[in-house]
Amino acid sequence: MADLLNALVLFANFVLIPGLSYGAQLALGALGVTLVYGVLRFSNFAHGDTMAFGAMATILVTWWLQARGFHIHPLPTALLGLPFGIAATVLLCMLVERTVYRYYRHKKSPPLVFMIASVGVMLIINGVVRFVIGADDRQFADGQRFLIKARDFKQATGLSEGLSLKVSQGLTIVIAILLVIALFWFLQKTRSGKAMRAFSDNEELALLSGIDPLRVVRMTWILAAALATIAGTLYGLDKSFKPFTYHQLLLPIFAAAIVGGIGKPHGAIAGGFVIAFSEVTITYAYKKFLIYLLPAAWQPHGLVQLLSTDYKFAVSFIILVIVLLACPTGIFRGRVL
């Protein structure tokens, strides 16, 4: 019995909790991609770097607050910086929308042109982020580190395996849940949200019913910027902030959006968790887990790891390929790109 519990705790500690928090971060990122796709109809390659920009803005404010001695002790100071980061990112997205995308929308350019333009935006934001904060790892987490410490858990339960829950992981999950509830309330209940959904569903019909396209587009960018900043900051708190990592997050985020069904917000959330849990479960070494469960004679010698952690990008890619081949619209019947 104790062996079974130990195995479960081990699994929760190394698969369930990291998968949940990583999945929540991916889901928030994929929501931004999916909203932009649904309303503006292009895959935004700059989203990963927008996340980096948002996180950077938050970090700068956080550092300033930390230097001034502002703290909200058990929680990380970055939460105080978050609103400023969101404001900065919203401004950036509005600026990009005004100077870059609006022109192509007026010209009714094909989505590919938007995509290439977003590559240009990506390069610019990437350059700005590295110019301002540098290309190295940055730490900005403070406050209490753990909600549950592995040692306390062991003492409390008497098990030999510890369960630890970082504050950043707990925060990620809580914030993601609140945010998703707020977003769905906004999309389903408010006039602006309904206008957005109508616009995404059928642009001509929405225009005929008097929906202001500029307002919808602005709303979309505000939401995408806020989601990107929050996702970026939470990812940075959980791991660490490095511009290049954010750039590389683009692939799992796209994979999550497509797997769930692009253009569908609930699909993005499901996709985020599918991708995150596949990455974590496939790259986790099950040796210890199996040792607890199997009789002594069957115990494994190797690590029992399906793929080494370096191949985590391969996992999101393979899932993406399977979904593309089996049902190109994704789990929730999004658009076919």
Binding site: F45, L112, F317, L324
Partner: peptide, 9 residues
Amino acid sequence: LRADYLAIA
């Protein structure tokens, strides 16, 4: 499939 998928693939 469509062009965006090729890009992501």
